[in-house]
């Protein structure tokens, strides 16, 4: 007991000493003044006139100031997913079998980790207009959950829950339609396409939502996650299934 206590005291004093050194040298303290470049960006995207009302300059630029560019990027990714489906000619899904998967330990930890991944990815996407992150980053994070499930449980686990490439591509199509609608809705009120703050509210119940940026980020989150998940899924189908789909012989 005495030695254990001694060990504990040693560990804590070491940690305390380290913390004190780090604090005393000031390496953990953030700078008190914002650099001029930072001030310029925050004024242009949040504090000044005619801004996107987002303190996160990257999101303001990506979805507002150069929104059309982002629409093309999203379209390119969508075409890549669809082209993949066309090349692999996935129109059906393999018949359901029982997958082997990995050990019970991997399965149990994956169940916990997958739930946490979904929560973290949602936080990244929903705070895209406030802190670094956004729809694409959140969606890519969310896609890790099916990517983990495929090797650890086998892809049948996803197919058994009706998560097929077809459904995921449909989901992606719907999310992209939502992005298009958010961009087009201001037109019906006589405003320009992709109008942000003049049409969408910057605050809802006193909380900053940065107008259309939150809507774009949420839709992009679903679009990117379902797109990546569809790709992961059809890339993991066995070659035999793809050959059967194409009607090729094994000779």
């Amino acid at each position: 007991m005495g030695r254990r206590l001694l060990g504990l005291v040693f560990v804590y004093s070491l940690a305390l000493a380290l913390a004190l050194v780090v604090y005393a040298t000031g390496s953990l303290q953030p700078p008190h003044e914002i650099k001029r470049l930072g001030v310029f960006y925050v004024e242009e995207t949040f504090f000044g006139n005619m801004t996107a009302m987002s303190p996160e300059a990257v999101t303001a630029i990506v979805w507002d100031y150069r929104g059309l560019d982002t629409v093309y990027e999203t379209a390119v990714f969508f075409l890549a997913v669809v082209a993949g489906l066309a090349v692999f000619r996935v129109s059906k899904t393999p018949p359901l079998k029982r997958g082997v998967g990995l050990t019970e330990i991997s399965r149990t930890s994956t169940k916990i980790v997958a739930a946490l991944i979904v929560v973290v990815s949602a936080s990244i996407a929903l705070h895209g207009h406030l802190t670094p992150g956004g729809g694409f980053q959140g969606g890519s994070t969310l896609a890790i959950a099916p990517l983990l499930v495929i090797p650890i449980f086998s892809y049948y686990a996803l197919l058994a829950r009706r998560l097929t490439p077809g459904l995921l591509v449909t989901l992606r199509g719907l999310a992209l339609t939502a992005i298009g609608l958010v961009a087009l809705l201001p037109v019906f009120k006589g405003l320009e396409v992709v109008t942000n703050i003049r049409f969408y509210p910057a605050y809802i119940l006193g909380q900053l939502v940065s107008g259309s940026l939150l809507l774009y980020n949420s839709s992009e989150y679903i679009a990117v996650a379902s797109g990546f998940a569809a790709v992961f899924l059809y890339l993991s189908f066995e070659e035999e299934f793809h050959e059967e789909e194409r009607g090729e012989d094994h000779e």
Binding site: V120, S123, V209
Partner: peptide
């Protein structure tokens, strides 16, 4: 977990 990850407790969070 969401709140710890986000590191903020505004009504929005």
């Amino acid at each position: 977990f969401y709140i710890v990850y986000t590191g903020s407790t505004t009504p929005y969070d």
